[in-house]
């Protein structure tokens, strides 16, 4: 474990720039979002989680898969250029878990080349949560408030300094590069971090019993809760856009000229009726069925298919963002308490 004085954070982040884009949590127009670190305006926000997770750096909202150029019967297929190197500082434990889950989905079986290229060029420097955020329930899924793995380096805010845990060789190399900025942690620093973790746990109110919910879900397949709890859905897809593990996408070709076209992969929402629309019919016609699919996919299908991988990281963003105030922990509460 290492120590970095808070006054040295900007110097450390400067040391990371060069061939990498460094992303940090920044407050812009009232929203907390990841943005490019600017040493001239180093107003890094140390409280709260970003409004959207950093999944766009591995799975962009829109990504060009191919450019096609046809000339008679000659077809030139080009895929996209290599993604930039990126380092994210300040990624929260819930979002580290989100990327772990996406890694499992996108890199197992057929490995998605685009995801893999972005992921290989990404370094994750995490920041533990000293208190619960709005709507968070990561503690009950054991994904937070302090991360156990999934990071290259993990920072804990001890007040005037950070305790820094090393997760990977890549993370260690970043410390070695600016060795002068770091000092060795003392036992008292680690004790302080342990205390902060305990006190953070005590700040959580919302909880989900994922194990019990998963075991009881099949019995609730035909329950009235799906229609009842999704009745206020306005079909905005917000719950999907802000979810660190939602990975569904659509693919569409668009002509860009008489002989050229592009193939785009972009985020899709299982809450939209069109998600399951086929030529002749739609297999999930009601919002109740679509809401049920979302909850089952998160809590049951993903862990069953991917060896326990978590479909929900407990970040709570789907609850915060929903204009219909749909709270899937309320649905899960009905299921675990009934």
């Amino acid at each position: 474990m290492k120590i970095l004085a808070k006054t040295k954070l900007v110097d450390f982040l400067k040391s990371l720039q060069g061939d990498s884009e460094v992303l940090v949590p920044l407050k812009r127009n009232g929203d907390l979002l990841f943005g490019t670190f600017d040493p001239e305006q180093p107003d890094i926000e140390l409280k709260g989680k970003t409004a959207i997770p950093p999944k766009e750096y591995v799975f962009p909202q829109r990504e060009k898969l191919f450019t096609f150029e046809t000339n008679g019967n000659k077809v030139d297929i080009r895929d996209q250029a290599s993604p930039p190197k990126r380092i994210i500082w300040g990624i929260r434990p819930c979002d580290l878990q989100g990327i772990k889950t996406l890694d499992t989905i996108y890199l197992s079986g057929y490995s998605d080349n685009y995801y893999q290229a972005r992921r290989q060029n990404l370094i994750l420097l995490g920041l533990n949560c000293n208190e619960c955020c709005d709507a968070g329930f990561c503690h009950s899924l054991q994904t937070g408030p302090f991360a156990k793995d999934g990071f290259d380096l993990m920072f804990t805010d001890l007040g005037d300094k950070f305790l820094v845990a090393i997760g990977t060789e890549a993370g260690k190399a970043l410390i070695d590069k600016s060795r002068g900025l770091f000092t060795e942690a003392m036992a008292s620093d680690e004790r302080k971090a342990d205390e902060l973790e305990r006190s953070s746990w005590a700040t959580f109110e919302r909880r989900v019993d994922a194990k019990v919910a998963k075991a009881r879900l099949p019995k609730f397949w035909n329950d009235a809760c799906w229609a009842k709890d999704s009745a206020s859905c306005i079909l905005c897809g917000g719950c999907n856009w802000v979810c660190p593990t939602c990975h569904c996408f659509n693919v569409e070709d668009t002509a860009t000229g008489a002989r050229t076209s592009v193939r785009i992969k972009y985020w899709d929402s299982c809450q939209f009726g069109g998600f399951t629309q086929m030529a002749a019919e739609n297999t999930r016609q009601t919002q109740a069925e679509r809401y049920r699919q979302r909850v089952f996919h998160k809590m049951s299908y993903t862990p069953d298919k991917y060896d326990g991988a978590l479909g929900c990281t407990g970040c709570g963003r789907c609850i915060e963002v929903c204009p219909g105030e749909i709270d899937f922990t309320v649905t899960l509460g009905r299921i675990t308490q009934k």
């Binding site: 996408f249 659509n250 899709d268 998600f275 299908y301």
Partner: peptide
């Protein structure tokens, strides 16, 4: 089922 990728990634046919 509706499908985009055929590779178990896009989620439509789950």
């Amino acid at each position: 089922r509706r499908m985009e990728c055929g590779l178990g990634k896009c989620g439509h046919c789950n």
